[in-house]
Amino acid sequence: MALMRYAEALNAALREEMLADPSVFLFGEDIGRYGGVFKVSKGLMEEFGESRVRDTPISEQALTAMAVTAAMTGTRPVLEIMYADFVPLTLDALVNQASIYNYIWNDQVKMPFVLRTQGGGGAGAGAQHSKALDSMLAHIPGIKVVAPSTPADAKGMLKAAIRDDQPVVFLEHKLLYNIRGEVPDGDVTVPLGKAATVRDGNDVSIFATSKMVVEARKAAELLAADGVSAEVIDLRSLRPLDVNAIVTSIAKTHHAVVVNEGWRFCGYAAELSATIMDHAFDELDAPVARVTLPDMPIPYSEPLEVAMLPNAEKIRAAALATLK
């Protein structure tokens, strides 16, 4: 075990996979000489050279489309899109290209590429640099979407994502890069599609991903002071979703709070609610509570942005309301 920051854990994963497999290469804006805006690829160009670690022009649309065909012709590209807010520029490559070929071409090609990006608010980055947009990505059949919340999962899941033969969107969070945590040494992968119970509880289940897991853990502490035993499940993977973990937890607590840093309407929290209804309706003792962004752009000024984002206190309030 080693104590690492989330960004360092990602860096370690990239480095290990590049050492192990010469077909892995990185490209993206500012990732080479500068080491990435969030320093995730620090030192890798020096170690692996300019062919395998490429600084690119500001061309998200073509970069993503190129990752798709590079992946189906023998390489395992890892593309960094600096902000999730720029992902809409890449959507043709994801929706019309990457997601279809494996099926449409009757399994003639594999599509092993990873699109790393980071989203989420709380850093005063304004309406075009603060969104999660995870729901939009998880909507696309044929693409996996994962969002680890700890350094250990960041490393283990990035390694698993690079080795996966399907396209994987790997969602990071700008406020997670500096968190520290124990990371297992060596070649340890974390499977995509398995949730983790990060806190056991009996009264209410809180489901979250990415930074919202941090908020959910804080909420569980607050709830403990309220006399409520909250279970916190880090879904880790939005798609494929570990529905069994969800059902198992609800069968114990009979109350569910779903937390997502995206918008509410047609959002990931809505999907979780519907999934719970599909698979655990008769276990529910209260309607599923959603904690999300309100349906509006994210403002800049601190009190405005803080008022908007889901946080531990909002999760606590939702949990208490479902238990009424």
Partner: peptide
């Protein structure tokens, strides 16, 4: 237009390999 980056991506793969 999608075929243009598609071919460029294949060429990128060939170059890296």
């Amino acid at each position: 237009g999608a075929g243009i980056p598609a071919a460029a991506g294949m060429a990128l793969s060939m170059q890296v390999l």
